[in-house]
Amino acid sequence: MRIVITGASGNVGTALLQKLSGSDHELVGVVRRPPEPRGVYESVRWHALDLAAPDADVALRDVFAGADAVVHLAWGFQPTRNTEYLTRIGVGGTSAVLSAAHAAGVPQLVHMSSVGAYAPGRYGERVDESWPTTGVRTSPYSRDKSAAEALLDDYEQQHGEDAVTIARMRPGFIVKRAAASGLMRYALPGYVPMFAVPLLPVLPLDRRLCIPLIHASDVADAYVRVLERGARGPFNLAGEPPLGRDEVAEVLGAKAVHLPSGVLGALVDLSWRARLQPIDRGWLDMAFTVPLLDCGRARSELDWQPQWSSVAALRDVIGGVAQQAHADSPPLRRRSLLEQARRDLTEGLLTTRHLP
Rank of each mutant, 00 (worst) to 15 (best):
G7S: 05
S9H: 04
A15Y: 00
L27N: 10
P37M: 02
D55E: 14
L60A: 04
L60D: 08
F64S: 01
W75Q: 13
Q78I: 08
P79M: 04
N82I: 02
L86I: 03
T87H: 08
T94Y: 03
V97W: 02
A119P: 09
E129R: 05
T134Y: 09
V136P: 12
Y141N: 04
S142W: 09
A150G: 07
Y155F: 15
E156R: 14
Q157Y: 07
D162K: 15
T165S: 14
R168V: 15
P171F: 02
P171C: 03
V175D: 10
L183W: 00
P189T: 06
G190H: 09
V197H: 05
C210Y: 00
R232M: 05
L237A: 07
G244R: 06
E247I: 03
G253L: 06
V263L: 14
L264G: 11
A266S: 12
V268W: 10
R275D: 15
L276Q: 13
F288V: 08
P291Q: 10
D294V: 11
C295N: 13
A298I: 13
E301P: 10
L314G: 13
R315C: 07
G320Q: 07
Q323N: 14
P330F: 09
R333I: 03
R342A: 14
R343I: 01
L349A: 15
R353D: 00
